[in-house]
Design a protein around this nucleic acid. Sequence first.
DNA 1: CGATGTACGACCGAAATGGTCTTGCTTCCC
DNA 2: GGGAAGCAAGACCATTTCGGTCGTACATCG
Lengths: 162, 162
Amino acid sequence: MLRLTKKADYGLMALKYLAEQADLAEKAGADLHLTGARSAKDIAEAYHIPPQLLAKILQTLARAGILVSHAGTNGGYALARPAATISTFEVIRAIDGPLFITSCITIHGACDLAGHCTIKEPLRKVNDSITSLLSGISIADLAEPVDHLPAAMAGGLVSIER
Amino acid sequence: MLRLTKKADYGLMALKYLAEQADLAEKAGADLHLTGARSAKDIAEAYHIPPQLLAKILQTLARAGILVSHAGTNGGYALARPAATISTFEVIRAIDGPLFITSCITIHGACDLAGHCTIKEPLRKVNDSITSLLSGISIADLAEPVDHLPAAMAGGLVSIER
DNA sequence: CGATGTACGACCGAAATGGTCTTGCTTCCC
DNA sequence: GGGAAGCAAGACCATTTCGGTCGTACATCG
Ligand code: FES
Ligand code: FES
């Protein structure tokens, strides 16, 4: 029904990994300049995902301003900002593009069925809701095994009356 | 980022249409046996969508127990239950299949990356959240132009602390 | 300079999607 | 009983998206 592409999945994994590295580096008081910088290959190996593909994903993320890259020997990628300020929504959007829940996003602006489709509006609301849900989750939240994840997410978070 | 397939979209439209018809028929005090029964072709024409495709979708829905079908002259489809008791989630699931937000649903149960993928758990929570969100919206909610849709959906519905 | 590593685009095979066609069965109505 | 109207269930096909590879160019460090 709704699917996160594998690319986005990989991206999140990588981000999480980077967040952990940054955390570790900070604790060890390491040189700030090299804080948690990891090569694409390293990350790919850690998770057993195709290196070339990961590289491309990271590039996308870098272009989106979520990562900073550094070429050359001992180069690699690192988070552009603290993990807590990067939302999963941002990441997914950067990778999968600005897709919308309704399939009526055509190239020429409006939908083919504009006019006789009344379904769109309510669904947009749903979409907004999901968006804000995703926006509320940061990479930092993924990194730490927060066992007491928000109770609000469990259920009954939305009540529609009449 | 997350997309409803066109089929599901069509399905929801059709359901909404059927719900309206049922409502009308009820008000008119029509023969209950024929309440709001419409042929696939009728619905398809109303929304300008390929009739054959719609037919197939409706069949799926019927198999899922959401619609009841009646063959023969003046046959057609009608809601199996009151519109208020049919959730959008149910519909989407029936049409698009039991897809999950994470791409790690393989045929052989567990994921390939099981073990070294820590991203899965938090995402599952997100998925649950979306599920319950969708479950809270019925066909009846789509049918009536509820301008004051739940404030809860607008934003800030989930707070993640820590 | 050369090793390491990012940047980027072309390319490709496989799968999901959207849609069509064919064939058969039911039920109604004359 | 015989159409016609309608659903049921497939096979089938075209197009797009997705996941992944390759090759080449450029940057940086030592
Ligand atoms: S599908 Fe585009 S408005 Fe409904
Ligand atoms: S992708 Fe399957 S567990 Fe993460």
